[in-house]
Amino acid sequence: MKKPELGTRKEVQLDNDIAISVKGVKKSFKLPTERSSGLKQAIFNRLRGIKGYTEQKVLQGLDFEIKKGEFVGIVGRNGSGKSTLLKILAGIYYPQAGEITINGTLIPFIELGVGFNPELTGRENVYLNGALLGFSNEEMDKMYDDIWKFAELEPFQDQKLKNYSSGMQVRLAFSIAIRAQGDILLLDEVLAVGDAAFQVKCGDYFRSLHDKKQTVVLVTHSMTNVRTFCDRAILLDRGKVVMDGDPHKVADEYNRLLGIKKK
């Protein structure tokens, strides 16, 4: 069997103004063509000399750099490769080719409330989720009360998470997430949930990130967010960068791609 070529992803601490550098990054997934996957199917495929999968090229050579202090939006239609890109930046998926350099500590939010377990109490979940963000027990002790106050859920601390409404869970997770400290934040539409009041809080959070010159990469479908918060936007289509620059122009182009007329 031919060994697949691999790209690289490295984390460095350099004193220049580049936060993320992406060079020629490619990624494809093997989608099984047979319905059953398992040892039997694998042996069958080997015997019949077929691959048993088709290759879905999700990212076909991306190049861009993100500077320190930039708030960058990544937009594109469903299936354009946004989330895959974010997962590669986060180190969750392995790039097939190309080179990724992350300069500084990176905090990814692919989802709010990672590791939340319905059988554990709110308190236990806070510590677990905190640990996944890299906070020790002692650090969580210090933030603990603030987290609950911000989420406005103090009376429910010792209830099991399964007794929370989905909105309550999101509020709790968000309240933990915003404490994360890193040089670069990756946000994957995590904040596209919740009611109007929650959206206001998210807006405040984005604004505060923008004001303190935090480096942020935000994957979003909301052109309002792109226009309001982003310094720059990158439009992906079919795994390629089709536009990179002014957020308003990118938002217009995105709407054109989608066939939405500009108001």
Binding site: A90, G91, I92, P108, I110, E111, V114, G115, L132
Partner: peptide, 8 residues
């Protein structure tokens, strides 16, 4: 698997 898909 859930964790592996979301954090590195």
């Amino acid at each position: 698997g859930d964790l592996l898909r979301k954090i590195s």
